[in-house]
Amino acid sequence: MALPSSQSRGSSVSGLILTLKPQAPEALDGAGLLPASLAGLSPAEAARRPLAPGIELGECFTVQADPAAPDHRLTLRTGARRLARLGCAMDGGTLRVVGDAGDLLGQDLRGGEIVVEGGCGAYAGAGQRAGLIRVRGDAGDFLGGAADGYEGMRGGVLLVQGRAGARAGWRMRRGLIAVAGGCGDWCGAEMLAGTLVAPRCGARAGLGLRRGSLVLWECPPELPATFNDAGVAEFVWLARLDRWLAALEFRLPPLTQRARRLVGDQGAGGKGEILIVGG
């Protein structure tokens, strides 16, 4: 998205802080709240930007300059999960959410970084193509999963420090999802490819898994009968993955090379795998 020309820029070139007003509508579409679309605007200019048809941004948010932040950083103080589609199709910059984000966080994300200090709703990272999403709290169902009109995650990195709900990685095609607090049932179900890392997950993990990798520390409680046990072996790529997660400053137990490999889902081609770290 093109930045405003220098002539239309306000005097401020700092980042902005948007604080949700209590009187704002209960549910809001936050797709337009992108660092690039507000970069270079003064708080007054930003407040006059349309948020939705007939609604100006300033009607729902208090807008402040953030002198300590660079031009391409936008901070949202949201409170509860009322803002859906935050960071939708964002292609650069940094979006920081202080509080919780609603559903479809980072939908179709193409670049940049989204940091959510709280939790987020369902379908975070749906259709994500690139970029990085960090969620400090818990995530809802369908993390990185396919939403209506969108495929599952197609690239980039999605890191959740808390727990994720059911069907994490559903129909995911590429990229990395890591969930430090573990995932719910149907984790990696119908996953096409990519990598999902979590210490543990609920029942029926990997059902319909085609080619991707689920990396777990604990064997799921109920595994589909369509997975074959390949035994324990050494997988150097796990060491490489461990280095990458460390570089992303994501806290997980160390990934050893040694892992038990469960191959499946044989009902979906059998080219996927569940790796149980440590065997």
Partner: peptide, 22 residues
């Protein structure tokens, strides 16, 4: 063989008798 993209780089996991060649 299986492909993995790690840190933006495409890696190939080639199964060998000892385990995997990356």
């Amino acid at each position: 063989q299986r492909s993995k993209v790690v840190d933006g780089r495409r890696l190939w996991r080639i199964p060998v008798m000892e385990g995997e060649f990356l």
